[in-house]
Design a protein around this nucleic acid. Structure first.
Lengths: 134, 134
DNA sequence: ATGCCTGCAAAGCTTTTGCAGATGC
DNA sequence: GCATCTGCAAAAGCTTTGCAGGCAT
């Protein structure tokens, strides 16, 4: 039940929030822009303002429910935080987003940061790729 | 001589372009936003419009003279392309940007892309870090 | 009941664009 | 001289915010 997740996150279980959470859970695209979410709401005949979508997504981010990515395009993309960290590969031809994770890379990253006297708080790794058979 | 670089890149050697190239070469910060460049121009008593800065930086990017990064902040930062690829570490406390490169990480990245049937066109790796002695 | 939410419209920021005049070659 | 470039101001995205009314608890 979404209302539980919301309350657990310290957010009142309002209709827009519940709907947005549902949209993101049910969407076939795990990465959605605010506009994408807004359009999906309209498609479901939900009356929610775009400003509210932005506000809710920002609150979700603060609450750790979603992760905000920037990729390379000047606008934000949101993804439900299912708890398992991973990196992304974006196909330049189709726009498809593939998730992956590699412990070896993560290990080396920590090592490099440490070598400079730092601790990693977060990181962003995006591979921009194209199909091999081009 | 900057005008040579510009002509080689197929761009007319105009004053704004030359000045912007100089600014970026001489700045102690290798990563500058359009606004940063614009302010630096004003500080040097150069009369160049902000729109021109954006236009020139975009042309430079297309010409391969600079690289545009997005990091995580909703605005672009530009860096002179000195030919040697590297990744970035951004200190969350001071904003300092450190460059690094690791062949092992690069190798694994290519391997992962290949495993999914892709070839890497480009990639972006940014570590958001904080000093160890916090 | 009351304090947190929402919708709308307006404003904010970064970046782009149209146009007339200026400049490089 | 002519095409390209620049400055200005206006516009265009994306995102945030102020305010008056609405909703969850």
């Amino acid at each position: 039940m979404e209302s539980q997740d919301l309350k657990k996150a310290g957010l009142k279980a309002t209709l827009p929030r519940i709907k947005i959470l549902q949209i993101m859970e049910e969407s076939e695209h795990r990465h959605m822009s605010a506009e994408d979410v807004y359009k999906a709401l309209l498609d479901s005949n939900e009356q929610v303002g775009l400003a509210t979508v932005y506000r809710v997504l920002t609150q979700f981010e603060a609450a750790g429910l979603v992760i905000r990515h920037h990729f390379d395009s000047g606008h934000s993309v949101f993804e439900l935080d299912r708890g398992s960290h991973h990196d992304h590969m974006v196909c330049l031809k189709t726009g498809r987003v593939i998730e992956f994770k590699d412990d070896e890379i993560e290990r080396i990253q920590r090592e490099i940061a440490a070598r400079h006297g730092y601790i990693i708080e977060d990181h962003s790794l995006v591979l921009y790729v194209k199909p091999r058979e081009d």
